[in-house]
Design a protein around this nucleic acid. Structure first.
Lengths: 187, 187
DNA sequence: TTTCATTATACAACAAGTTGTTTGATTATA
DNA sequence: TATAATCAAACAACTTGTTGTATAATGAAA
């Protein structure tokens, strides 16, 4: 198998691309193998040479979008001051916005947000753990809080065509994170 | 049709219940009408007397889980001090935890979180708008931030069998919201 | 270089299962 | 007894995953 990588890689990618076009339009459960292969110009059977089923396409695609530890921008308190994972997430999002805004949106995959959090948590943890003596459990909750908020607000930002200038958004989040949301809300 | 509401309401509920048992086990697209009606002890045709298709069941179920404006606990700055929507969401979640933890979980429906946010936002907005002079757009971002964080951390809490005592969780969130997350993280 | 067997790639056709609908028959209740 | 509620059976249309087959690129032998 796979003795002609240029060809199979191309076919694979064509199928993924067609899948993505459909995924942007409708829920995954309404996508058929027939549609994908027709759009890509292949026989339906060919699909099964590359994927076990439609969910396999999504999984493979998602896997390629989850940053591995070493390719994530290195994160230290020094270079990030307070920014926390803000920059990291921002860059990640920017780089893959085409996919992220859909996967993290209303018709996306709730599992993807989890995968993303899971991949980022260890990095933050490792760096932050030395600066506090929090109960590990409580620490996890705080991380979950931060990442949920960030992913939520970033998705909102992309969804709404970046109505707010990027600088304003960053300033806003940083302010909320350092001074609390209450102060900002109650003047 | 529907001249004997007691009976039809019961049937409807039985079908929804069976659907829910299956939904807790597997992805919605692998659920068949046959399975639902078999589990509930009805003929397959009966299903179509009540729902147009399987997604219709989920939609109807979700609709019953989204609080309407008037049934939401009234929220005022006075009685909530800083708590913001915390108590509100907490009670809502507690009341429907059986469904919320699944719908908001990894295999849930990403659209449900949106629906929930959309239903809560106006209430917060209405009450909070008078206490600040924020730019409306920025205001929306802050709301999105808060609700994403809250829903995220609450889901995490339920998913992990409430490892943290409820009081601790509430105190934690309130602290983060009033004093910022940074302070808590960096001792 | 040319030939030819190998095999990677893609295809067409298949059985099995689901969907949503329809028709007409059973219950049971009011 | 009239009819609401459910059931049984059958339907065409569609999707799925698999199997066996054709095409064409590859590389070793002549």
């Amino acid at each position: 198998m796979k003795k002609r990588p240029e060809i199979t890689a191309q076919t694979r990618q064509n199928l993924i691309d067609s899948f993505w076009l459909l995924y942007c339009e409708k829920r995954i459960e309404n996508i058929t193998v027939k549609e994908i292969t027709q759009k890509a110009g292949y026989n339906r059977g060919t699909f099964y040479e590359y994927f076990t089923d439609i969910y396999d396409v999504l999984e493979q695609l998602e896997a390629s979008l989850i940053p591995s530890l070493d390719e994530l921008p290195q994160f230290t308190i020094q270079n990030q001051t307070m920014g926390m994972p803000l920059d990291m997430l921002m860059k990640l999002y920017e780089k893959n916005s085409k996919y992220y805004s859909v996967l993290l949106g209303d018709n996306g995959d709730p599992g993807f947000a989890s995968k993303l959090k899971t991949s980022i948590k260890p990095i933050l943890k490792q760096e932050l753990i030395q600066y506090n003596d929090l109960d590990p459990i409580e620490f996890d909750f705080i991380l979950e809080y931060i990442l949920s908020a960030m992913i939520g607000i970033m998705s909102y930002w992309f969804r709404n065509d970046k109505k707010l200038p990027a600088e304003d958004l960053i300033r806003l989040i940083q302010d909320i994170m350092t001074n609390g949301v209450t102060n900002r809300l109650l003047k």
